[in-house]
Design a protein around this nucleic acid. Structure first.
Lengths: 133, 133, 133, 133
DNA sequence: GTGGTCTAGACCACT
DNA sequence: GTGGTCTAGACCACC
C-alpha cells in the first residue's frame, strides 16, 4: 500500500485518502480483516495531520468499509462490504451524468467513453487475488 | 432549458450550473450559436447571486464552451467545441477510477457498471436533433 | 432555545449538544425550516470550541435532522424527518434493555418503569405547537 | 450464562460486561448468593483482558450488586439488592429523555415507544424463577 | 499504544 | 460572514 496524496489538489486530503483506501480494497491490496496503520502512523508516513487521517477512517467506518476493533485497531471490514445503496446509486448517477455529458460535448464517442469506463473498472480489480502489496 | 439547482448539495452552485449548461449542450437543448440569458436574467430566474452565474459563464468561456459577443451577449460556442484535452482526460480518469473502485467494492459487476455508463451517455445525447426547448 | 452543557459529564460535549438539539426539535422549540445559530455563534454562546459545535451539526446533518443550505446556513430539516431506521431501533433496543434490566434488579416495578417512559415521552413533545421559545 | 461481547461496539467492554451481568441478575440466571467465575476464568472464557473483567467486578461491587467473599470468591449480592438511588434515577432520566425525544422526532408514537419499553422490561425478567443456566 | 475528544488558530471557497 | 478543511498540541479512556 503505497499511498500518495496530492497536496495541490482541489480535492480535500481526507477524500483523496478515502479514495486510495477504497481502491486498495477493490484491487485486493487490502483484504477483508487486514489491519490498517494506526492513525498516527499513517499520518506521519503521509506527512499529514493525525486528524485528517482520523476523519477518513471515521467516514469509512460510518459507511461500513472499515471496522474499529477494540484491540486490533482499525481493520478492513471482514464481513460483508456495504452493497449498492440508494445513496451510492445517486452519487454514481450524478457524477457519471456530468462526465458523460462533457465527454459527449468534447466529441468523445459512446464507445470511447464506455471503453474507458470498462478499462478503469478492470484496472480497479486487476490485482484481486494477488499478493496484497 | 429548465435548470434546477440543489441548494443543499455539497457541490457549489456555480459548478452545478456549469454541469447543467454542458448537459444542455450535450442534449442539443443548447445549440452552437444559441444565445444564453444575460447574467442578470439567469441569476434572477434561478434565484441565485449574480456573481455565481458570472463565475459559471467565465469558466465555461475559458474552457471554450461559450463565447462572449459584443452585442449578441453570451452565446454557445458556434465554432468547434473544445476537444478531449489532457486536462479533461485526467479529470475523467481520476473520477472514473474512484467511482469504479467503489462500485467494485460494493459488489457491482463490471457489466452493471459499464451498462450504467452507457445508459447515462445515451441519456446525455438523447435529445440531439430535438427542439432545444 | 436555552442550551446548557455539563462540562463534567462523561458524555462528550458534542453528544450532549446533539441530544439538546433533538429535544428542541421534539418539543417544537425548533421547528422544521428554523435557522440554527452559526457554528461560531453557538460555540461562543455555549463557551465551547467551534469544532465541537461543528461536529454536532455534521452528525445531525448526516442523520437527516438538519440541512445545510448554501445561503441560509444550517436549518432544521424542513422536509420529512428521518424515520425509525433499523439503526435507531437497534440503539433503542440496546439502551432500553440495559436500563430495564437495571431498573428491575433495583426493584422498580414494570408499571413504575413504564410510567416513567410514558412521562418522559410526554415531556419531550409537551410544547409541540407552542411558542418556539 | 452465555455472555457475548461486541468487540466493535463503541461501548467499552467493561460496560458491556456490567450490562450482561445485571441482565443475568434481572432474568434470574444469576441468583443472590450465586458464585461468579473468577476474574481469570471469565477473562479467559471471554477472550478479553483480565483487567477488564476486574474493572467490571469492582464497579458492580461498589454499586452493591456483587460481594467479594474471602473464600467463596465473587458472589451475587445475597442480601438486599441496591434500590432505586438518586444516581440511578438521574441516569434513567437522562437516557430515557434522550431516547424518547429522538423516538418522537422520528415519528414513533407514544404507544409504540411505551410498548417497546414494556416489552423490554418483560423480556428482562422473563426467566425469573427459571433454572439460571 | 490505540482511538476519541477538545481546544486553538488559521486559511479557503462560496455567496 | 458562512461552513469546510487542515494543522498543532493536549488529555483521556480503554486495553
Amino acid at each position: 500500500m503505497f499511498i500518495e496524496l496530492d497536496l495541490q489538489s482541489e480535492n480535500p486530503l481526507y477524500e483523496q485518502l478515502i479514495d486510495r483506501l477504497i481502491e486498495g480494497i477493490a484491487s485486493g491490496a487490502l483484504k477483508p480483516g487486514d489491519p490498517l496503520p494506526s492513525v498516527r502512523n499513517l499520518a506521519e508516513s503521509l506527512g499529514i495531520n493525525l486528524h485528517t487521517v482520523n476523519k477518513s477512517y471515521t467516514l469509512l467506518k460510518q459507511d461500513g468499509f472499515l471496522q474499529v476493533h477494540r484491540k486490533r485497531g482499525v481493520i478492513v471490514q471482514p464481513d460483508a462490504m456495504p452493497g449498492v445503496t440508494a445513496e451510492f446509486e445517486a452519487k454514481l448517477f450524478r457524477q457519471l451524468r456530468s462526465l458523460a455529458a462533457e465527454a459527449a460535448v468534447r466529441g468523445m464517442t459512446e464507445e470511447a467513453f464506455v471503453n474507458q469506463c470498462r478499462r478503469l473498472y478492470g484496472d480497479a480489480i486487476r490485482k484481486r487475488g494477488g499478493d496484497g502489496q
